[in-house]
Amino acid sequence: MTSAIPGVQALTSIFRTAGGVFLLLLETVRAAFGRWPRRRVMVDQFYLIGYRSTPVVLTTGLFTGMVLAVQSFNQFRRVNITSMVGAVVGVSMVKELGPVLSGLMLAGRVGAAITAEIGTMSVTEQVDALRALATNPVRWLVLPRVLAAVLMTPILTLMADLVGIVGGSFILVGFLKVEWHFHYTNLLDWLKVWDVSVGCAKSSCFGLLIALISSYKGLNTEPGAAGVGKAATEAVVTSCIMILISDFFLTVAFAAIKPDWAN
């Protein structure tokens, strides 16, 4: 029996989840080419996943940008190039911190909510009721959440980037007396359309991972209220880890395909 060895058990569980999430992706894509659920069901998810996440993501972006400004300023002051700090803040936000931190915050907020909702529906037989009413739960439950997450995550990330840069600039120019003109030209000089696009593409992938993993965990919740809590925790942890792992590979992949005009 494999279950006697904890390492083997953990490994099979990871592969089972990965396989299940991949099959769910295929099923969702298939559903996307069919008839979509009525508009209300779609709009609700855009509202819940997108609009309702704004405060969390904006707060994350703002304070990340500001703390980054303070920390970098202290380093750069030693070599007397404080006018470059704004550019460092901008590039770091756009390329890494915006997408990854927004992704992690959304994994907590949106991921847990998706799993708890779908998980509750599973254990109260509402998912079976959907199937009994000849409706594919993937089409009805997963597709709207995946679409909303894939489209709203980059928008939220851009907002986080923006407030992070504004917050950082405010600290630098307002309190740390960096010259506005140099700060501004360096920032614009270093911020590249390509990097912003890559950041958006990465956050779309993070949104997809969050929605798929959380839906999968919800649909496979064990019976009982305890099962829902367990599934939600697993969804958040798995989503966060997958965001960090995939971030590395996406970064490498995008670096490899970077076109000449982007340099």
Binding site: T120, M121, T124, E125, Q126, D128, A129, L130, A132
Partner: peptide
Amino acid sequence: LFQAAALFD
């Protein structure tokens, strides 16, 4: 008709 109704909340 499900035993616990299974209405959509």
